[in-house]
Design a protein around this nucleic acid. Structure first.
Lengths: 338, 338
DNA sequence: TTGAAAGCGTTACCAC
DNA sequence: GTGGTAACGCTTTCAA
């Protein structure tokens, strides 16, 4: 590997000059610049990121900390992040935390040691204090999807509460008379916001009782279990708003197993817009978050901060969208699955 | 951030000594060691990876180059890779190539500049020549899933041909009399191997004709299109072996749309074992690859190479497994979806 | 506009 | 066992 010295020698100039043409900051004589460029090409010179980093430059590396890339919600986000990063010549470290505080902490340390430039994080655990070392090290952080604090950090999230309202209103619009909600764990801001959206609407109705809310884990199994309980406790439910798509998927499975017709007996609406909801029979109506765009927006915000193009912290709340599919199209004839 | 100098000063020893206790290679007096350790803790000293890297040490960073993290096949692999990496204190760069040669090339350059220690790659494009620079730089490479060369690189893959044979034999065993195959693009080794496995079995039968093989893209749309053609050209097909699960998913959708009963009219078997196949109605029988384990094995191999615990290149061929589900359980009464 | 040289925080070699 | 110090490859300040 050729070094900057080799280039300098080959071009007959000083190391400093070569550095100047690499960084394009200071003025360099056009002719000298050409000589240097030629020398760089001939030697296939590639600056060492390490050395630049040590000398105080950015590494063009960010980290993306998510609970679990194998959860279908995250790959889209990750792709959005990585695409933008790629576009701006950044690389991204993938960090799976499993939403475990100790893994997150351990990563935060490592990332500092490795001189990453910035962090995009999705976490329920992390707080001001844990991020303090990054603040000290001047490493900007963007909170994605689940902000714990919207004052001191840039945040990218979607409008969960509105989405929930849209979901419930849609179920009402198609004629549902008693709508249950499968809520995610309360430790998720997103779960809380969606529950609040649901409650905001249904609490005006006389049929509403708190037992229409069933909490469950944000996964398929959670959806199944919740449905079982819900159906046992409330014989006349005719609509379910699931707090995320995975739970909706589980709910659908279980409803079919229990012999319920979806949507005619019970209509179902999910939240997230992951592609799995298009594969079921019937397909699942859902509140679509702009997942990819959220990742992309987070990455863009972070990179602009790193480049100094943004200094203030800002909140980006992206809009969600109701996607109507078979699971709420009552009375429509669907092709049989078996 | 405290540096090694600060620690040395605080402990009243030389920088070299501190370095020694950090690296635990050479002998250091127990007492001095203690002093140093105490000093490190008091100053919250954390060695800079950059500096270590510049000085010739490994960065404990590997790259994972895959086509697209949002393709459901890859997150499991990525998770396997990252888990093992995490366990050995490595970080992983996520690189989405979209299977595009120019993106791959660009990444290969960047990775070299950034002094990554090793690479795990899934690619149809990359070849000996393109990886030469890494070889020169002494950066080990592990080929995952789609080896282009099994001589000079360590390879982790699964037994595609066997899997295909298992799939076809299963379809025969449940009574299928005419089995078609939706094959992936020929540029994928995996697609070719599966097709060969299929042909190996069916070519012995009198009903076999090459028109039973339909090529399509490895995605849902591909599966749909292939089914349309297949059904149009071969009215008496009663079994389909899809070259991967995404195609099987599309195939199922289209079969239902065409009014076919799966499995009674046409049985269906996929390949990969991604979790989506459990969500459909009926659930899809598939040949399950140990996806997570493949990622984990690749990472383990790479890291062992980096640690010098392995020197030779080796091939790991993991076994696949037939998972029987509704799409091949003929005559079994399934709950209705609508 | 350019060059010399002092860092950046480690490691590793050579002395003692 | 331990210390001194060149070297890793670059950026940046200071002079010229």
């Amino acid at each position: 590997m050729a070094t900057i010295r080799d280039v300098a020698k080959a071009a007959g100039v000083s190391v400093a000059t070569v550095s100047r043409v690499i960084n394009k900051n200071e003025y360099v004589n056009k002719e000298t610049e050409q000589k240097v460029i030629v020398a760089m090409q001939e030697l296939h010179y590639e600056p060492s990121s390490l050395a630049r980093g040590l000398a105080g430059k950015k590494m063009n590396t960010i980290a993306l900390m998510i609970p679990d890339i194998s959860n279908p919600f995250f790959p889209g986000l990750a792709r959005g992040v990585e695409d933008v990063a790629q576009q701006y010549d950044f690389n991204v470290f993938l960090c799976n935390s499993d939403d475990l505080a100790y893994k997150e902490k351990s990563y935060l340390e490592i990332l500092r040691k490795k001189s990453i430039d910035g962090l995009i994080i999705i976490s329920n655990n992390v707080n001001e204090e844990e991020l303090e070392p990054l603040r000290m090290a001047n490493i900007p952080v963007v909170l994605l999807d689940r902000p714990f604090n919207e004052q001191n950090y840039s945040v990218v999230r979607s409008n969960n509460r509105n989405g929930a309202i849209m979901a419930v209103e849609h179920l009402l619009a198609i004629g549902c008379k008693k709508i249950a909600h499968i809520a995610g764990p309360e430790k998720f801001v997103t779960a809380r916001e969606r529950r609040l959206g649901y409650e905001g609407i249904v609490s005006q109705y006389s049929w509403y009782t708190p037992s229409l809310i069933e909490h469950a884990n944000f996964d398929i199994e959670g959806g199944k279990q919740a449905v079982t309980k819900l159906v046992a406790n409330n014989t006349d439910i005719d609509g379910i708003f699931a707090g995320n798509d995975l739970m909706a998927l589980g709910a659908l499975k279980q409803l079919i197993k229990l012999g319920k017709n979806v949507p005619d007996d019970i209509a179902l609406c999910g939240f997230d817009g992951i592609s799995l909801t298009e594969l079921t029979q019937p397909e699942i109506t859902t509140i679509q978050q702009p997942i990819y765009e959220m990742g992309a927006a987070a990455a863009l915000t972070l990179i602009k901060k790193l480049k100094g193009e943004i200094t203030e912290t800002k909140i980006q709340e992206l809009d969600v969208k109701l996607i109507i599919r078979g699971s709420t199209e009552k009375g429509k004839k669907l092709p049989l699955a078996t």
